[in-house]
């Protein structure tokens, strides 16, 4: 499915932290591209720097060396073309669903009416119609993450970045949300155009992704970038599916 042009370019990125005067390497010489209309997954063992990499891509952190270019330019965190979904949801507990979803629009000075109609549209798109005025504490985990997704989509991003968005959810809810994310991504009328997702579950990566970027244990290096060309919807019971899972598993461990 990789027919889009590259929109994100990660170019020899390394990241290290100073700890007790010593250099502590987290990421080492990471290079890959994310293409438009692609679903890309980054997998790797815990602590290998996946979250660090994603935070650098959305502009929350700067690499020690190397460049990250979005559409040929460095990304700033508040750039609306790149949006983010958090593992812990990161909803503001004192704001209603609508207010949470509108947060970015408010920050970017979108007029009130447009804000309202856009928020309504995306709250419906993630299946939360009727909960507009609920507070996060009144929602289940799956519903909270739906708010998180609506909050990111309402910015009309080209690239949606997600850091283990389903790992805090139970298995059934997580599977439902995976299918819904796929549906949103394939819908040409709705953003996002491309998805970049971090996960530690190889099964999840093979189920969702066109391309899987496999990282080694710390310091994270790219072991391999795999092109998964299974047709969708994918079936976990097919031998091709677990063939892929086994192969990526053997790469990482």
């Amino acid at each position: 499915m990789t027919d889009g042009h590259p929109i994100l370019e990660i170019d020899h990125v390394s990241r290290s932290y100073a700890e007790n005067g010593k250099e502590f390497r987290v990421l080492e010489d990471i290079s890959f591209q994310v293409h438009d209309r692609d679903f890309t997954c980054i997998v790797g063992p815990s602590g290998c720097g996946k979250s660090t990499l994603l935070r650098e891509i959305v502009g929350l952190d700067r690499p020690t060396s190397g460049r990250i270019l979005f559409d040929g330019e460095p990304v700033r965190a508040e750039d609306t073309r790149v949006s983010m979904v958090f593992q812990s949801f990161a909803l503001f507990p004192w704001l209603t669903v609508t207010q949470n979803v509108q947060l970015g629009l408010e920050a970017h000075k979108v007029p009130e009416e447009e804000r309202q109609s856009k928020a309504k549209k995306y709250i419906e798109a993630v299946g939360l119609a009727g909960f507009e005025n609920a507070y996060p504490r009144e929602l289940s985990g799956g519903m909270k993450q739906r708010v998180g997704i609506a909050r990111a989509l309402v910015m009309d991003p080209l690239l949606l970045c997600m850091d283990e968005p389903f790992s805090a959810l139970d298995a059934l809810t997580a599977q439902n949300l995976r299918d819904e994310i796929l549906a949103l991504w394939t819908n040409p009328d709705l953003p996002p155009s491309a998805v970049l997702m971090v996960t530690h579950s190889i099964d999840e990566a093979v189920y969702l992704a066109d391309r899987v970027v496999a990282l080694s244990a710390r310091p994270g290096r790219i072991v391999k970038v795999e092109q998964i060309d299974l047709p969708r919807p994918r079936n976990r019971k097919e031998p091709e599916f677990y063939g892929w899972v086994d192969e990526i598993y053997s790469l990482i461990v």
Binding site: A77, E78, S83, F86, S88, A90, G104, E106, A107
Partner: peptide, 21 residues
């Protein structure tokens, strides 16, 4: 929580709005 701060940054919530929200 750090993730709330980061969410504010990602969605461009700064200065006055960040204080208020």
């Amino acid at each position: 929580p750090a993730d709330l701060r980061e969410a504010a940054t990602v969605f461009g919530v700064r200065d006055w709005l960040r204080f208020r929200r």
